[in-house]
């Protein structure tokens, strides 16, 4: 499984960024390789409109199975994510990446629309 987190920082101790489109980092965890890779998304600050779709496009490129984020994505981004075979979990804002991953493993996260 490949799991994506919206994150405010780079490692396991970073916090989940509650924002979807304007998340600072996108973290991709590959369970098989046990490898966590951080992608800096802060250039999104320069985007006036359409941050959600841009981030959704990146997530598509990372080919993940699961997305863990805070608030749900906005309408535009939600429409794009629906075209992907991706399970979305929300309300993980404020948790560390590790906590969010454990919560996911324990089936304790809330599925997103």
């Amino acid at each position: 499984m490949r799991i994506i987190f919206t994150s405010t920082g780079e490692g396991w101790d970073a916090k989940i960024d509650p924002r979807f489109g304007r998340t600072d980092y996108i973290l991709v965890y590959d369970e098989e390789k046990d490898e966590l890779v951080a992608h800096d998304n802060r250039e999104i600050m320069e985007v006036a409109h359409g941050a959600g779709p841009k981030t959704a496009q990146k997530i598509h490129e990372f080919k993940a199975d699961v997305l863990i984020t805070g608030n749900g994505p906005g309408g535009n981004a939600a429409g794009i994510l629906k075209t992907m075979p991706l399970k979305i979990f929300i309300r993980a804002g404020g948790m560390s990446i590790r906590e969010a991953y454990e919560a996911y493993k324990d089936d304790a996260l809330e599925p997103g629309a």
């Binding site: 985007v47 409109h49 359409g50 779709p53 841009k54 429409g79 794009i80 992907m84």
Partner: peptide
């Protein structure tokens, strides 16, 4: 300039709101 077009793999997507 409005980020209204994105590419998902082999698909181009136009977002009318943008």
């Amino acid at each position: 300039k409005f980020n209204a077009i994105i590419k998902l793999g082999e698909m181009i997507l136009v977002m009318p709101p943008l």
